[in-house]
Simulated assay, not measured.
Amino acid sequence: MTVVAESAATEKTRRAVNPGVTVGGALVVILAVIFFVGGKDQGLVGQAIVSGLLLGGVYALISVGLTLIFGVLGIVNFAQGAMLTLAMYIVYALSTAGLPVYVATLLAVPVMFVFGMIVQATLLTKLTIGGSHEGPLLVTLGLSLLIINVLLMVFGGRPKSVEAPVDGSISILGTVAAWPRVLAFVGAAVVAIALKSVLERTRLGLSIRAVASNSEGAKLVGVDIGRVYALTFGIGAACVAVAGGLMTPFTSLTPSVGEQFTILAFVIVVLGGLGSVVGAMVGGIVIGLVQTVGALYLPGTGSLILVFAVFVMVLFLKPEGLYGGRR
């Protein structure tokens, strides 16, 4: 299983060429070619690049929770999109009660953390410890359907919205970026960096990395596997709570809104390498850029063709993902 934190990589891997550098260099070259000789207005291209970076940051945060859960528990959480939706509706409910949206987000994080721990402890622990692969998939899929239908009954199917607490926009290298999107990117980056620091520099992070690397060995040295599983699922749920809260000011809410991010999150996780936090961060930025810049040439859903084309190409050239280890 891929180790969650890259600090546990071998010395040989550390001396190898960082795939992020290679991907970053390739992206810079491709974007430069599109900007100067792509046949599109340079202002539009610049705007698409900035929008892609901002969008990619939020994608990365959604995917970090998914890849963390897979890296430790070894399961694919099909309820990730539904949990994102649940977090957004919690923020919406708190906002309509009079709280500022970002304060509501801070309150939604511990709620989703506890929700994630409860789901793992009550529905998934026996299955994951027992080594079942099909059971967790079916449970998380059923949980996704349950969340969506409960939200539909409580809030109805009409789209809802939350007023952005900060109006206006900021100029970035001659382009315009709305403040809510900039704040979402900054918040996602801070949370992702903080999560990586926790995984690398704390006892909890050490336990998580130990379980991700060898759960049986970790159990033999006294690590409470069930507790680590529950905390990991809770952290994954907390990550989507942050992402949901940050996205709420510029996203129309419906009970199925999170499903559109589920497939993209899976693409990002596999692209970056299953179980790799850094890979999810890099993959999110890549997919965000491909989607927005690609929309200049393939409007509408056509940009998704490019997203999946990049996904297939990476799998063909490096099946384990950018930061994944060969199994």
Rank of each mutant, 00 (worst) to 15 (best):
102 Y>I: 08
54 L>K: 04
192 A>G: 06
40 K>L: 12
74 G>H: 01
176 V>P: 01
320 E>S: 15
309 A>R: 07
94 L>E: 07
323 Y>T: 06
323 Y>R: 03
62 I>T: 08
112 M>A: 08
174 G>Y: 10
52 G>R: 02
41 D>P: 06
90 I>Q: 04
46 G>F: 02
116 G>K: 01
173 L>I: 14
254 T>E: 12
282 V>D: 01
17 V>H: 02
115 F>I: 14
116 G>L: 04
271 L>D: 01
215 S>C: 12
297 Y>E: 09
210 A>T: 11
303 S>F: 11
301 T>V: 15
183 L>S: 12
76 V>Y: 03
132 S>N: 11
154 V>C: 14
245 G>K: 02
222 G>Y: 09
309 A>F: 12
241 A>Q: 02
202 T>D: 03
31 L>P: 07
39 G>P: 11
134 E>P: 07
285 I>A: 04
272 G>N: 06
216 E>D: 15
49 I>R: 02
65 G>W: 01
211 V>T: 10
55 L>D: 07
288 G>M: 08
38 G>K: 06
142 G>V: 10
52 G>D: 07
311 F>A: 02
2 T>W: 05
27 L>V: 10
217 G>K: 09
307 V>Y: 00
72 V>L: 05
28 V>T: 13
295 A>E: 13
165 P>D: 12
151 L>G: 03
163 E>S: 14
205 G>Q: 05
126 K>T: 15
23 V>M: 07
192 A>F: 05
238 A>F: 04
98 G>D: 08
52 G>W: 01
104 A>P: 06
101 V>S: 04
194 A>P: 03
61 L>K: 03
117 M>T: 05
108 A>W: 02
134 E>A: 15
196 K>E: 11
1 M>Q: 07
191 V>D: 01
147 I>R: 00
197 S>L: 15
94 L>A: 07
291 Q>P: 03
279 G>F: 01
175 T>S: 13
205 G>K: 05
185 F>N: 07
298 L>R: 10
268 I>V: 11
26 A>K: 04
58 V>K: 02
246 L>V: 08
257 V>E: 12
14 R>N: 13
256 S>I: 14
204 L>S: 10
6 E>R: 12
69 I>D: 00
264 L>V: 11
273 G>F: 00
262 T>Y: 08
98 G>H: 07
95 S>A: 13
19 P>L: 05
118 I>L: 15
94 L>F: 04
255 P>Y: 06
100 P>H: 09
72 V>E: 03
301 T>N: 15
209 R>A: 09
44 L>I: 11
155 F>K: 07
28 V>F: 09
103 V>P: 09
80 Q>V: 12
212 A>P: 06
184 A>L: 07
65 G>P: 02
286 V>K: 00
97 A>G: 14
86 L>D: 05
94 L>C: 03
268 I>F: 02
98 G>I: 08
87 A>N: 00
160 K>C: 04
273 G>W: 00
240 V>K: 00
307 V>H: 00
194 A>W: 03
103 V>H: 08
3 V>A: 06
107 L>G: 11
1 M>D: 04
22 T>R: 05
218 A>K: 05
